[in-house]
């Protein structure tokens, strides 16, 4: 479903010269799977996911989503994905219903099909109370729910969540994670990025540990813990990063 091969993204930076935010990474993700990208802030997770969502163009390498190349068929890719990140806010001057409806229309959904889908979504995400509430009046949790509804309104086969729980309290974060787990059950191919170890352990089928634009290790949680002989992901993560930094300084 998602195929990334040797993907690179560089940009010019005044201070550092040319910077490779994503530096030759490769991975695959399949339907019915949650693929986790685990990395510290500034590791290149967001850049990588922005390329997959066609917001950024890759400098080199290949990225395919649902069989379409992000560089050559960006519109097709956008039709087949749902993307949610800290930077995809909701409109202040639109109600929850209007917003989700608007995006449904942009995705070209038929009107009766769209209305049925909206009812269903507002029911399952328990959003009927905030149906006619303006975005500016919503709590963070409610905004996040509207965002999720917006992401999945067109029922895309691929879903990309970039740190969806950042800034949320425990209750809301838990609800979001449950929703994502539910989506996996529906057979979606999900990419999930985070810097929180617990979320990865709980949710992800496979993970890639990413640091300074490179993938340092990839596999199931179990495989990684066994390979590096550590009791949990946090230790694995530290080991890998220390090892990489040591290599760099050497």
């Amino acid at each position: 479903m998602i195929h990334v091969q040797n993907l690179t993204k560089s940009f010019a930076d005044l201070r550092r010269g040319e910077v490779h935010a994503v530096d030759g990474i490769s991975f695959d993700a399949h339907p019915g799977e949650i693929f986790g990208l685990l990395g510290p802030n500034g590791a290149g997770k967001t850049t990588c996911l922005r390329i997959l969502s066609t917001v950024l163009r890759p400098t080199s390498g290949l990225a395919e989503v649902a069989g379409y190349d992000v560089a050559t068929h960006p519109a097709k890719v956008r039709e087949h994905i749902g993307f949610m990140s800290g930077n995809t806010g909701i409109y202040d001057r639109m109600t929850a219903w209007e917003l989700v409806e608007y995006f449904g229309r942009l995705y070209g959904m038929e009107e009766d099909q769209l209305q049925a889908r909206l009812e269903e979504l507002f029911e399952t995400l328990q959003m009927n109370e905030i149906r006619d509430m303006l975005g500016s009046k919503m709590s963070t949790g409610n905004r996040q729910r509207v965002s999720i509804a917006r992401t999945i309104v067109h029922d895309p086969p691929v879903l990309i969540f970039d740190e969806p729980t950042s800034g949320l309290d425990v209750l809301v974060a838990r609800a979001v994670l449950n929703t994502i787990a539910g989506l996996k059950e529906q057979g979606k191919c999900i990419i999930f990025s985070t810097h929180i170890m617990r979320e990865v352990e709980k949710l992800c089928d496979r993970i890639a540990i990413i640091h300074k634009g490179r993938i340092l290790a990839m596999g199931t949680v179990k495989e990684l813990e066994e390979k590096y002989q550590e009791p949990d992901m946090e230790e694995v993560f530290f080991d890998l990063i220390q090892e990489y930094e040591a290599q760099l300084t050497a």
Binding site: I81, F83, Y91, Y107
Partner: peptide, 14 residues
């Protein structure tokens, strides 16, 4: 400023 630019960019509209 309101953080909705990217929301717009990932919709199918070119």
């Amino acid at each position: 400023e309101r953080g909705t630019m990217e929301t717009m960019l990932i919709c199918p509209a070119s």
